[in-house]
Design a binder for these strands. Structure first.
Lengths: 161, 161
DNA sequence: GTAATTCCTTTCCAGATCGAACTATATCAC
DNA sequence: GTGATATAGTTCGATCTGGAAAGGAATTAC
């Protein structure tokens, strides 16, 4: 605003920044809705996610954290809470004693069976403002963006900074 | 992949769910990158966001929380930390004594001036995997989705649940 | 004016998150 | 085997987050 001469100040305005800002906002709103939905089930969003990744046979904690793109240390506490609610349990892996398998209990499976379809339906319903073709388009763009983000990112612009 | 006979289990598979899952993942990765970028500047992501919304003249805390789509109560602590770092300060609003204005200090403005352009450049660079047209397309889709999310959401599907 | 209501902010608590340090186990090098 | 390295999970401290409750202040109803 106070820069004279060239108009480089227009704060953000690049389509990339706008897209990213919107992505954050959409994510935030979806999260708020999900939190609200799951509240009546006495589950938090991360608790529900872990429940979705756990199986009766057991899944290593680090496999879950990898899929959730978070650190192992996050899950310790969340799993503790799920255990206290009776939805999962920890079992040592006989093959690798470092591993603790997260096992869905019968109660957990039942809970999941009851609320997962409804939750998915709600998520889909909230995207009704997009046509079927637009949903596909969005998914493809995000897929491409996600793939691009996995690469090490060759620094090139502003090499001096 | 391993599903035999009837595919009733296909777990998610709807384009909506896939799109939403990708949106979460992209957001998560972008956030990780941002956190890493700002770390060398001794700033967290939310601290940086507040810095971006604050002005020298002062902005009501609730205006910032509205823009950040978060609760007022979140910002109290973050602002406290920014104050202890000397980047903002609180000033009472003479017009409305309930309001506390968040004011960018000279040090805060200087910090922002130094890191904001670089940060924006990095965000843009991370979206290089999309063409210019695709970025526009993504922005438009997210804009439409965001607008749709603001509406009260007329419950229609699964009305009995 | 007073009372009721609404609004702005802070405080408190539970939960989640990251990052670093630590323990235990596994694997590799030799 | 021993030692170095890597991996799995936990613990801890700092930060962020939402939600509820409380305080002070503005606004409205009367």
């Amino acid at each position: 605003m106070s820069v004279q001469s060239g108009p480089p100040a227009a704060d953000q305005a690049t389509p990339e920044l706008e897209a990213y800002t919107l992505l954050r906002q959409v994510n935030s709103m979806m999260d708020t809705y999900n939190r609200f939905d799951l509240r009546s089930e006495d589950l938090t969003v991360p608790q529900f996610m872990i429940l979705n990744y756990a199986t009766a046979d057991g899944v290593p904690l680090s496999e879950i954290s990898a899929r959730m793109l978070c650190d192992n240390s996050n899950l310790t506490g969340i799993v503790d809470r799920l255990i206290s609610k009776g939805y999962v349990q920890r079992r040592p892996d006989p093959q690798d004693r470092r591993v603790s398998l997260i096992c869905l209990t019968a109660a957990g499976a039942e809970k999941l069976r009851r609320i997962k379809p409804r939750h998915h339906a709600r998520v889909s319903r909230r995207m009704r403002s997009l046509s079927e073709a637009q949903v596909h388009e969005l998914r493809n763009l995000l897929q491409q963006l996600f793939a691009g983000l996995q690469e090490p990112v060759g620094e090139d612009d502003s090499p001096s900074a």
